[in-house]
């Protein structure tokens, strides 16, 4: 539980202090979720602020104080999705935002400063990003909420306001696509990482 429902109740009545308490309590996890959903560290704060602006102006639409968290996730997913749509309209490639990560990976591969753990994490990031490139933005977000943020099906049901069965079907299809891409890369983490490294080499040449 990120925030006490009583504080949410006070914020709903227009209490600015209570709203500030919500921001203080939720901003860090929301920044993290957005960071993972949009994949671009530069715009994370902008999107998070947009989420809290929406929270501020739509708190009166919240059905119950207890339902705040799934509702907050819902607003977060919507803001992240809007951001990705705007970005696509500007013809920016998502992969170009990984430049910083790729530089880190290159440095790591050259054995400059990075520890083995940091290299492993960077490779995991690259691998997950490349696997999630095989599904739509909606499925990417659903998979991240389930597999990375650790939301249960019940929680996802509240976030998306759809029946559990519909979610299961959607998750099944998204997982299949990701798994197919994973197996195409050799089916194991090491093989997939090698494939990524090969792709990177080809890209560099």
């Amino acid at each position: 539980m990120l925030i006490d429902p009583e504080v949410v109740g006070r914020a709903r009545t227009g209490d600015s202090q209570a709203f500030n308490q919500i921001v203080q309590a939720c901003r860090k996890p929301i920044l993290g979720t957005i960071r993972r959903l949009i994949g671009n560290p530069d715009d994370v704060e902008d999107v998070a602020q947009e989420v809290f602006v929406r929270v501020y102006y739509s708190l009166d639409q919240l059905r119950s104080d207890e339902g705040f968290e799934p509702w907050l996730y819902r607003l977060t997913v919507n803001a992240a999705y809007d951001y990705l749509r705007r970005k696509r309209r500007r013809h920016e490639s998502r992969m170009s935002d990984l430049g910083e990560d790729q530089v880190t990976l290159a440095e790591a591969a050259e054995g400059t400063k990075k520890s083995a753990d940091a290299v492993r994490k960077t490779k995991a990031r690259e691998l997950v990003e490349s696997l999630l490139a095989n599904v739509s933005d909606q499925d990417r977000m659903l998979l991240l909420l389930k597999e990375v943020e650790g939301l249960s099906l019940k929680e996802l049901e509240k976030v998306y306001r759809v029946k559990e069965n519909a979610l299961k079907v959607r998750l099944f299809r998204a997982r299949q696509r990701v798994l197919k891409a994973f197996e195409a890369g050799g089916g194991t983490t090491a093989a997939a990482e090698d494939k990524l490294a090969d792709e990177k080499k080809e890209g560099d040449q």
């Binding site: 901003r27 860090k28 996890p29 920044l31 993290g32 960071r35 993972r36 560290p41 994370v44 704060e45 998070a48 602020q49 492993r120 994490k121 960077t122 995991a124 990031r125 691998l127 997950v128 696997l131 597999e147 990375v148 299961k168 099944f172 997982r175 299949q176 990701v178 798994l179 994973f182 194991t188 983490t189 997939a192």
Partner: peptide, 28 residues
């Protein structure tokens, strides 16, 4: 398929560890 295979789950766990929640800036 209700879950990913073990090695893929491991990759997603590493991804989560690689991208921890960032600290908000003072101007947030």
């Amino acid at each position: 398929m209700n879950e990913f295979p073990q090695d893929l789950q491991q990759v997603f766990r590493q991804y989560r560890e690689a991208l921890p929640d960032p600290e908000p800036s003072v101007n947030f």
